[in-house]
Design a protein around this nucleic acid. Structure first.
Lengths: 348, 348
DNA sequence: TTGTACGCGTTATCAC
DNA sequence: GTGATAACGCGTACAA
C-alpha cells in the first residue's frame, strides 16, 4: 500500500472521514478525545497531513502565485532591480503562506512555455512590464488567472505603478538648472525586441513600453530638447557603455547624458572614464532606479530611487487580494531623488 | 456557470469526455475530424486546457519542484553563490517543464513554514547545505518528498557534491609553497546558529556543517597548523572584514589568511586596505568559490572556482530522476584553481 | 475509434 | 459532535 490517506486514518481511528478532516483542518467542532485518537492513528500510519493536490482540487485553489520573470533567471537574479522586487514579493507571499512559482518567460522567444499555459496558480505577477499583446499576459488572461503587472496598465489586470514621469522631470530639471544645454538622452527600449540605435530627437516614435514613455515625457516636462537620443536594447551596463561611446564621439560633445536606468548610466560613467573624461567636470550623468552599485566607487550616480521592495510587496498583496476576489486599487508609488556625485555645471 | 470543464467541451462537441481528453492530451488515437470538433468547441467555450490541479490529482504528480532557499530571498539573491546555483536549477527544470517553487526557510527561526510542510511538490532541492537534523529536511523526508541536497550527504536524499577538500588542499599548498608559516584561517560556520568567534587552533571542534569540515580538512592536508582560527557567522563581506581586523591586530601579524569563501576573503582584503597593508606584499589572502567580484578591483582573489551553475543543473536533473523513480548517483564535481592577484611570498 | 464507469483524496453540506 | 453523501475535474482501464 502506498501513502496512507485521510480515509485510512479515519478508519484506523474509528471515525468518519469527515471527522478526521475536521480534526486536521481545525475547521469545525471536534471533541478533544476524538482529535487525539485521530492524531494518534495518523502518527501510527505515518500520515503527514492532507494531500495538498486533493485539497487544492476540492477547494479550487492551489495556494500558489506564479511570478513571471524574464527568460533566464540569471538575468533577473543579477539585475538589482528584479532582485529587490522579487524580494518584496517573496516576503509578502510568504507571510500569507502563498507559494511563489518562478516562471521564466521571454516574449521575444517563440512559443509560450508550458508553465505559463498550464501551471497551477491562483494568480500571477509579471515582473517585467509587458508590452501590449505580450503573449504570456494574453495566455494568463485567457486562462482567467488574475494578474498583477508592474508599471503599466492593462485591461483585466491589477497594476502597481510608480510616478516615474514626475521623478524623471525633477531629476532632469536639476540638470537644466545646472546650466546644461547640450543634453543627450539614453533611453530604455521603446518596444520589445528592438536593438540599440540612434533616434532622431525631433521625430521620436511613441514608446509602447510604458516606463520608457513615462520617462521620456518626464524629460520633456523638464523643458529639455535633447541634442541626441540613443535607444538601448536593454538595461545593461554594456549597453550603456556602447551607447555612451557613440554619444561622446559627437562634436560638439554633449555636456550631460540622462540615462533611463542606473545600469545604463553606470555604463556611461565607465565609458567616460575610459575616454579620460571627468565626471562631473566634463560630463554630467544621471540614472534612474536608485540601485546600489558599489563597484562604481568613488562615483555615486545621481538618480531617482524607486521603492522596489515595496513595489514587490504591493504586487504580492494585490495578488492576494485578487485571489480573495477583492477589487484592487494600488496608489502610485513615488520616487525619491538621490543627489549622487555625478552632476555638476557644464564645462565652459 | 464558471469555467467550462472538459466535460462541457465534450458535450458541446458531441463526444464523450474520454475522447475529448484524448484529443487534448494527444495520448491516444483520435480521428482528425473529431479532434477538430473538440478543439472548435473548446475555442467556442473559452476552454483553455485541462485544469492543472485535477490533472495533478489524477496523475499523482504536481509537476513542481520545491527549492528551499535561505530565509529572506534577498540574501539568496544577493549571494553570487546562490544566484548561480538557482540559475542552473531554473534552466534544467525549465527544460523539463517542471515548475520551480521557491520556499524560503531558515532553520534558525522557529517553526516550519507551511510551504515546506504542505506545498504540493514532487521533489525538493535544498540550496543551503542542511545540518544534521535540519527541520526542513526532516519535514520533507517525513512527507516522503524526494530531496536533493548540495554538498552533504544525508540519509534518504540524493546529493550533489564537490571535491572541496582537494580544492582547498591545493590552494592552501600554494600558500605553503610560497613560504608562509604564520597562516591564519577564517572559516565558515561550524554549525548553524553560531556567531562569529575566535577558536583555539589546537582544539577545534568537529564542524557539523560539511563544507566547513571539508575545507578545514583540506587546510590540514596541506600540512598547515594555523596560528589563529576565526569562525565567521556567515559568508558575508562584513563578517570577513570584522574577522580580519581581529586577525590583523595580532602580534606577530599573520602573513597569510586563508578564508573559506570569496565573500569572506573580500572582507579581509578591504580590512587590509583600511589598515594600509599591501595585498599581497604584506598579506596573502585566498578565498573559495571563484565568484566574480568586480568591485574588488584591481584585486582578483586567489580562489578555487566551483561550477555553481553546473551544480544547480545537476541538482535539478537529480530531482527529475528521483521523480521518475530512478536511482541517482551524481559524480563529485571538481573545483578549478584561480590564481588571482592576492598571493605572494611573505614579507621578510 | 469511441463511450462507460470509476477512482484520485479531500472537504462542504446537511442531517442526525 | 459526528457521520453519510456528493462533488471538485480529470485520465484510463475496459468494453463496445
Amino acid at each position: 500500500m502506498g501513502r496512507p490517506t485521510l480515509a485510512d486514518v479515519a478508519a484506523a481511528a474509528g471515525v468518519s472521514p469527515s471527522t478526521a478532516s475536521l480534526a486536521f483542518s481545525g475547521a469545525g467542532p471536534v471533541a478533544a478525545a476524538t482529535r487525539e485518537r485521530v492524531m494518534a492513528a495518523a502518527a501510527q500510519l505515518g500520515y503527514t497531513g492532507p494531500n495538498p493536490i486533493a485539497r487544492s482540487l476540492r477547494r479550487g485553489q492551489s495556494g500558489v502565485v506564479g511570478v513571471i520573470t524574464g527568460r533566464h533567471l540569471s538575468r533577473s537574479f543579477r539585475d538589482p532591480v528584479s532582485v529587490q522586487t522579487l524580494d518584496g514579493i517573496a516576503d509578502a507571499l510568504g507571510a500569507r503562506d502563498l507559494g511563489m512559482l518562478l516562471i521564466p518567460f521571454d516574449d521575444a522567444a517563440p512559443g509560450v512555455p508550458q508553465l505559463v499555459a498550464h501551471a497551477a496558480m491562483d494568480a500571477a505577477i509579471m515582473i517585467a512590464t509587458p508590452a501590449p499583446g505580450d503573449r504570456a499576459l494574453r495566455t494568463l488572461l485567457a486562462r482567467d488567472v488574475p494578474t498583477v503587472t508592474l508599471d503599466s496598465r492593462h485591461r483585466g489586470t491589477a497594476s502597481v505603478r510608480i510616478a516615474d514621469r514626475a521623478g524623471m522631470r525633477d531629476l532632469a530639471s536639476e540638470v537644466v538648472a545646472l546650466g546644461h544645454t547640450r543634453i543627450a538622452v539614453l533611453t530604455l527600449p521603446f518596444a520589445p525586441g528592438r536593438g540599440t540605435g540612434e533616434l532622431d530627437p525631433d521625430h521620436l516614435p511613441r514608446p509602447t513600453y510604458t516606463p520608457t514613455r513615462n520617462r521620456l515625457a518626464g524629460v520633456r516636462d523638464a523643458g529639455i530638447r535633447p541634442v541626441a537620443v540613443v535607444e538601448a536594447g536593454a538595461s545593461l551596463v554594456e549597453e550603456g557603455f556602447e551607447a555612451a561611446r557613440r554619444l561622446l564621439a559627437r562634436d560638439p560633445r554633449p555636456t550631460a547624458i540622462i540615462a533611463f536606468s542606473d545600469l545604463l548610466a553606470a555604463g556611461v560613467v565607465l565609458a567616460a572614464r575610459e575616454l579620460g573624461l571627468d565626471v562631473p567636470g566634463d560630463l554630467t550623468v544621471t540614472g534612474f532606479d536608485g540601485v546600489d552599485l558599489p563597484w562604481l566607487a568613488p562615483d555615486v550616480l545621481a538618480s531617482a530611487m524607486q521603492p522596489f521592495v515595496h513595489k514587490g510587496t504591493l504586487a504580492a498583496e494585490a495578488a492576494a487580494a485578487l485571489i480573495a476576489g477583492e477589487d484592487v486599487r494600488t496608489p502610485d508609488l513615488t520616487v525619491v531623488p538621490r543627489p549622487g556625485t555625478t552632476t555638476g555645471p557644464p564645462p565652459h
